[in-house]
Write a protein that binds this DNA or RNA. Structure first.
Lengths: 204, 204
DNA sequence: GAATGGTTAAAACATATGGTTAAATCAAAA
DNA sequence: TTTTGATTTAACCATATGTTTTAACCATTC
C-alpha cells in the first residue's frame, strides 16, 4: 500500500513529485514549477528543503540510480554455476526493471549529458565486485564447460538483451503497434528467452 | 574530405552546428546561442533561415533519424537466406552506427520525450518493408532450418545487441575504464560476434 | 497567552532565453 | 554608379525560470 499524498511529509511529497517529473522530462526539461505543482506545494518550498534544482536533481538521481543497479549482484558471490548465475541475473534484472521501466533511458541519458565530475561525485563506492565472477568464468572455460569468450562481450550481451527493450520501448511500440501491456507480455517471455539465448551461445 | 567552415554557406554552417549541439545536449538542453556560437554567426540569423528552435530541431531530427535507420533495409528483399540476412544486417548496422555513435541515444531519448504528434508528423512513410522477411522466416521455420521463434523476440535481440552498447557507451566506459578506442575495438569484434550469437541461437 | 522557532506561501528579483526589429552591409542588376 | 534585394548584425523585447525575500502561519514552550 502506497502512502497517499496527504499522509506524506512535504519533503516526501517533493521527492515523489521530483522523481516523477525528472524521470519524464530529464534534468533539462524539468521545471521547478512542474515539480511544485505535482507536489501540490509552493515553489519556494522546494528551495527551503533542497537548496537548488541541482541539489534536488542530485538527490533524485542517486535514488533512481539505485533502482538501476541490479539488486542481485550478491548473486555473483554465491556458490553456483555460471549458467545458473546468468539465468537468475537475467530473470531478476528484467523483473526489477519491469517495475521501473522509465529508469534505464533516464539514467543512460543523464550519464551521457552530465559532466563526468558530477557523476564521479555521485557514483563513488558503487563498483560491483566482479573479480570472483571473472575467476569462475576463466575456470569454467578451462574446464571446457563453456566456450572461450571475452568477458566484456558477455557483459554487453547480457546488459543489451535485458535493458535495451526498455530503452527503446517508445520506438518499439511505435513501429510494432504494441501497447504497454503487449510490450510487458513480451518482456515476461524474455525472462526465459534471454538467459536461454546467452547460455546456448556459450555452452560447449 | 569535409568542407571547411569557411567554404560552407551560412545555412550549411547552421545545420552543422545545430546537429552538433542538439546531438550533445538534446532539444531541451540546447541553446540557440550555443548553436550560433558554434556556427560563428549571429543568433538572429538562425531565425532568418529557420523560423524557430522547434523548426530547426525538426530539420535536424529528420536528418539524424536517417542516420539511425539501417541503410541495409533493402537487404531484406534480396534472395538470400535468413542467416545471411542477419549476418549482413548486424555487420553493416554496427558499422553504420560506429560512424555516428551519438545518434542512437539522441534519437531514443527524443522519441521518449517528444509528444507523439510531433513524431508521427516527422516519421511518416518510413515503415520498413518487413512482410517479405516475415514470410521467409515462417518458411524456413517450417522447413526446420531454424527453430520456431517469435519474430518480435528476434527483432529485439538483433537491435539490442547492435545498438545498446552505443546507448550505454558512457556508462560502459565508466565501469570498465575503457577509452573510446578500446570501446570501438570491442565493437569491431562484435560485428562478427553478434550475428554468430544470433544465428547459433536459432539454428536447428 | 505571549514568545519562539520552524514551516509555508506570495511576491519580487535577476538572469536566461527564444524571438523580433531596424538598420547596416554586400552583391548583383540596371 | 545607382539601385535593389538579399544577407547579416546589434540592440531590443517579452517571457520563462531558478532563486530570494518578506511576511504570514502554526505548533510548541515558557
Amino acid at each position: 500500500m502506497v502512502k497517499s499524498k496527504k499522509d506524506q511529509s512535504p519533503e516526501e511529497k517533493i521527492l515523489t513529485a521530483a522523481k516523477k517529473v525528472f524521470l519524464a522530462k530529464g534534468m533539462d526539461g524539468a521545471r521547478m514549477q512542474d515539480i511544485a505543482d505535482e507536489a501540490g506545494i509552493n515553489k519556494a518550498l522546494l528551495h527551503y528543503y533542497f537548496r537548488s534544482k541541482e541539489k534536488l536533481f542530485e538527490t533524485i538521481f542517486l535514488e533512481v540510480a539505485n533502482a538501476f543497479v541490479p539488486k542481485v549482484i550478491k548473486l555473483f558471490e554465491e556458490d553456483t554455476t555460471v549458467f545458473e548465475k546468468i539465468e537468475i541475473f537475467c530473470r531478476e534484472y528484467i523483473n526489477q526493471i519491469m517495475q521501473t521501466p522509465y529508469v534505464p533511458i533516464f539514467i543512460l541519458n543523464e550519464i551521457n549529458k552530465q559532466p563526468e565530475a558530477f557523476l564521479k561525485k555521485i557514483l563513488t563506492g558503487r563498483n560491483i565486485p566482479v573479480e570472483k565472477f571473472l575467476a569462475q568464468l576463466q575456470k569454467e572455460i578451462k574446464q571446457k564447460i563453456i566456450k572461450p569468450i571475452e568477458p566484456v562481450q558477455l557483459l554487453l550481451n547480457v546488459l543489451s538483451l535485458c535493458l535495451f527493450p526498455f530503452v527503446a520501448r517508445p520506438m518499439i511500440q511505435l513501429i510494432t503497434g504494441m501497447d504497454k501491456n503487449s510490450f510487458m507480455a513480451v518482456m515476461e517471455q524474455r525472462k526465459k528467452e534471454v538467459p536461454k539465448l546467452i547460455i546456448e551461445s556459450i555452452k560447449k
